[in-house]
């Protein structure tokens, strides 16, 4: 089982970064389905279009948790436009690769981040109107 995952994946799985709920988040992104075994929530704190804080909560396998942890590292401090450019492949590459079987089903983090940013922009638009 250990050989299935890279050292980097196991490191993030064992000690995830930016883990936990954010009570006063400006936006929340949600992806996955418990029936598939993976659900991710990503919470954003945004100031002047920059992600100043990001946290996650994930139910899922080691790959799901490691990709969640990694995306918080990648997105923190970035502008929303920069953050939108982070892809699933970027997340996997930063983790030293994922098992092929996990590439699609457990690599939700980029989608959840996208969902959070989309929700933020819609909320802002609605607020401005």
């Amino acid at each position: 089982m250990m050989a299935m995952y890279s050292e980097k994946v196991m490191e993030h799985f064992k000690h995830p970064h930016n883990m936990g709920e954010m009570e006063d988040a400006d936006a929340v992104g949600k992806k996955g389905n418990p029936a598939c075994g993976d659900v991710m929530y990503v919470y954003l704190k945004i100031k002047d279009n920059v992600i100043v804080d990001i946290r996650f909560q994930t139910m899922g396998c080691a790959a799901a948790i490691a990709t969640s942890s990694m995306i918080t590292d990648l997105a923190k401090g970035k502008t929303l436009d920069e953050a939108l450019k982070i892809t699933k492949s970027d997340v996997a590459a930063e983790l030293g690769g994922l098992p092929p079987l996990k590439m699609h089903c457990s690599n939700l983090a980029a989608d959840a981040l996208l969902d959070a940013i989309k929700n933020y922009r819609e909320k802002k638009k609605a607020g401005a109107a």
């Binding site: 995830p16 883990m19 936990g20 949600k30 418990p34 659900v39 991710m40 929530y41 909560q57 139910m59």
Partner: peptide
């Protein structure tokens, strides 16, 4: 479970 959003998510 601390890591999981699921209880609330349900």
């Amino acid at each position: 479970r601390k890591m999981s959003p699921l209880k609330k998510g349900m």
